[in-house]
């Protein structure tokens, strides 16, 4: 536990004494809950269609795969045509692309960012590293199976997958969302304890609350 995260008493310039407990004060500790779909099937279908056609990717590059996202934004492949846009903040994004190998240090940030995204949210694992560790299968500080830490909707295999493969993977994700089967956020909430135990097993310096939105 880092020093600045410990509970302490500080004195204000007025001489008032305040008790500060950063983990309590700065974060919400409520665990995620399963969010039901809209009451009407028609409305949920409309929402799912809109969600599928408006994928906002969180601008977070974890490994070497992030380099494959640039051709998607630029004229050669131009993913904007398919309703795929990039957002810089997890609050507004609904798709997290884990782009390549994920070191344990990055996993911590990925979990925090993922939990700040709003339900429904989707995860795409890009490259072999997210499936079985790829060429880092025996590395001491990268995770090998992404699915144990976050609920993954689609894997895109390859090392590296070309931008065409990414586009085809996004089309597959759209198909899954439209059929109403992309409930990753709810799966995460249902199996919250299992995911947390897995995450804590690899992250040694766990200095954040269990759930931080």
């Amino acid at each position: 536990m880092r020093d600045e995260l410990k509970k302490r008493v500080v004195k204000t310039p007025d001489g008032q004494e305040l008790e500060i407990e950063p983990l309590r004060d700065y974060y919400c500790e409520a665990p995620p809950t399963v969010m039901p779909a809209a009451y009407s099937k028609i409305v949920e279908g409309l929402f799912n269609w809109a969600r599928a056609e408006s994928l906002w990717i969180l601008g977070f590059g974890t490994g070497c795969g992030a380099i494959e996202m640039r051709p998607l934004m630029t004229p050669r492949f131009d993913a904007y045509r398919y309703g795929i846009q990039w957002r810089p903040t997890p609050r507004q994004a609904n798709l997290f692309v884990i782009s390549g190998y994920l070191s344990v240090k990055t996993l911590k940030r990925v979990i925090r960012s993922y939990e700040q995204m709003q339900n429904p949210k989707y995860v795409v694992g890009l490259g072999s590293c997210t499936i079985n560790g790829g060429m880092y299968f025996d590395s001491y500080n990268t995770i090998t199976r992404l699915d144990e830490y976050l609920p993954v909707d689609v894997y895109i295999a390859g090392c590296m997958p070309r931008p065409e493969a990414l586009l085809s993977g996004f089309e597959e994700l759209k198909r899954i969302i439209k059929s109403g089967k992309a409930e990753g956020a709810n799966r995460y909430a249902e199996n919250f304890d299992w995911y947390k135990a897995n995450q804590k097993r690899v992250i040694q310096d766990w200095d954040m609350p269990d759930y931080n939105w």
Binding site: A37, P75, R81
Partner: peptide, 26 residues
């Protein structure tokens, strides 16, 4: 101008529906 095709003209409506359709908000 950047030699892309860019978003479809109806994209704004889709983004709007999606944002209203989010299940959780804080």
């Amino acid at each position: 101008v950047g030699r892309r095709h860019g978003i479809p003209v109806w994209q704004n409506y889709l983004d709007l529906i999606k944002n209203y359709g989010l299940r959780s908000s804080i």
